[in-house]
Simulated assay, not measured.
Amino acid sequence: MHGPASSGWLLVALCAATGAYCLLRMRSRVEEQRRAAGGEALMGFGMAAMAVPAAVFTPPSWTWPAYAVVFGVAALHALWAARACTRHLHHLVGASAMVYMAAVMAASTGQHSGHGGAGIPLVTGTLLFYFTGYVLLSGVRLIPAATAGGAVGWGDRPELARACRLSMGIAMVAMLLTL
């Protein structure tokens, strides 16, 4: 993504840490946690890779279409899963946003370094509006959840999962702002 290198590295660290925690959640005893964690780990690591400052590493031109394909498949999976549970609609929007950002970056590959494409203002604005609302709502919901007796493993902490989702939402807003 385009923008200052220091904020890019902060996004990389935030998204990579979120992806790593989501991998830990895949070992949870709670089936719902395991189910959601895989897609969230993909989003976290994908966002970390996209946030690497362009001044440090300029990926080859085939990278952006590859991101679009990977997140397009993730969007189709979320669409399929949304048939049973509407909670997957957020994953659909997130994966679609990643496809959109990859397409914008692919379109800007032929332009001079540092002059990326701006995307479609209506789409970018709509995604910014959605993710800003998501971040605000997630922040309100970040109150620690009560656990049902006994020791709880790191992968079974719902408040940490919410914090990771909030982090990814904040990172998505930051990435969309750089378009």
Rank of each mutant, 00 (worst) to 15 (best):
G3N: 08
P4T: 13
P4D: 14
L11C: 11
L11P: 06
L11Q: 11
A13V: 15
L14S: 08
C15Y: 02
C15L: 06
C15P: 08
C15M: 11
A16W: 03
T18F: 01
T18K: 03
T18E: 01
T18Y: 01
G19P: 03
Y21K: 07
L24R: 06
R25G: 13
M26L: 15
R27L: 15
S28M: 05
E31R: 06
E31N: 05
E32H: 03
E32T: 08
R34C: 01
R34Y: 00
R35V: 00
G38R: 03
G38K: 00
G38L: 01
G39R: 02
G39A: 06
G39P: 09
M43L: 15
M43A: 13
G44L: 02
M47P: 00
M47W: 01
A48N: 03
M50C: 07
V52N: 05
V52P: 04
V52M: 06
A55R: 15
V56C: 10
F57H: 11
F57I: 11
T58L: 12
P59Q: 13
S61I: 07
Y67V: 15
V69M: 05
V70M: 13
G72F: 05
V73C: 12
A74P: 05
H77D: 11
H77E: 13
W80P: 00
A81K: 05
R83H: 14
R83Q: 13
R83P: 01
A84H: 10
C85T: 08
C85I: 01
T86V: 10
R87F: 02
L89G: 05
L89Q: 03
L89A: 09
L89F: 06
S96Y: 02
A97R: 05
M98E: 05
V99S: 04
M101F: 03
A103F: 02
S108G: 15
T109L: 00
Q111M: 14
G117T: 07
G117E: 05
G117R: 12
A118W: 09
G119L: 04
P121R: 04
V123G: 04
T124F: 05
T126H: 10
F129I: 09
F129V: 07
T132R: 10
Y134E: 09
Y134W: 13
V135S: 04
L137V: 12
L137C: 14
L137N: 12
S138Q: 11
S138E: 06
S138G: 12
G139V: 07
V140D: 08
R141D: 08
I143Y: 11
A145S: 14
A146C: 12
T147G: 09
T147A: 15
T147V: 13
A148I: 11
A151C: 07
V152D: 04
V152L: 09
V152M: 11
V152E: 10
W154Y: 10
W154K: 06
G155I: 02
R157Y: 06
E159C: 06
R162E: 07
A163P: 03
L166M: 09
S167W: 05
G169Y: 01
G169I: 02
A171T: 01
A171N: 04
M172E: 04
V173N: 08
A174M: 12
L176E: 04
T178L: 04
T178P: 01
T178E: 11
